[in-house]
Amino acid sequence: MLRILKNKYFILVLVTIAIFFTIGLSAKPDSNANWVSHIINATVSPLQKIFSFSGQKVSGSLSFFKDVKAVQKENEELKARIDQLEKENAQLQEYKVKNEELKSALNLKDQFNEYDFVGANIIAKDPGNWFNVFTIDIGKNNGIGNNFPVVTGKGLVGSVYSTGLISSKVVSIIDIDSTVSARISKSREVVRVKGDITLKEQGLCRMDYISPEVDVEVGDTIETSGLGGIFPKGIIIGKVKEIRQTNNELNRYAVIEPAVDFKRLEEVFVLKSKTGNTGVDNTAK
């Protein structure tokens, strides 16, 4: 009996089985098996914060020297644009007031009012080349939980899938595991936006389940549908970049260019529900 314990192969088989067991246990995001990784993550994340902050600074100051000229030209263009936008803005303010009046008259509920926007910095990204997962510097201590939607000012980024004490991991919408129920803004048709391994590295994703009679064009805006319970309705996902026909006439999919530039993402907002309702549990894929 003792001899078998010393056998290398026996230990190997034992460890392998134990690892498979852990994989099974930790596959559920809420499972208690993740507490070890939460503790270690709590110690790693301050260090990651320092490293990524200095990395951003270095890369920022390097590019500073590179594009002074371009910035000057851009500055002039932007000034002209500001004038133009200010004019537009004044007009839009007027519309806004009018819109709010009409909305309250119709008793429409504004979905975003139910959420708090919690700001967060990205402190680490996935070490490998396969997934598009990143770590943000807020966690359970800030009231963040699993499946909270993550956005920027431009549009949808993804959702939280694992929360530690002071950091959480976010799966972006271009990750190959991500699926978002979406809607074509123009035709109100429900579609599915999914990460795709062949498009991921260009920062694009794929739109499936387009029914044959629906009219989709390049440039159409895609937004979240609100179905599925994770994402509130009406967050911009991106624009249709290309429509591709698969082997038969009726089957097609579209390539979506997300509104968010995942390469240059540094800060995000986590949407925290004010009512404390985190929506439907979506642990099963």
């Binding site: 460890v15 392998t16 690892i19 498979f20 852990t22 994989i23 930790s26 596959a27 098996a33 993740n34 070890v36 990784s37 270690i40 993550n41 790693v44 680490a124 990204k125 996935d126 070490p127 490998g128 997934f131 997962v133 990143f134 770590t135 899938y161 694992s162 991991k169 799966v171 595991d177």
Partner: peptide
Amino acid sequence: SQDIIAGKVVGFYALLGL
């Protein structure tokens, strides 16, 4: 450590690394 930093499950990279 890769699992802990960014893995989706614990053990995936550990097994492969082993």
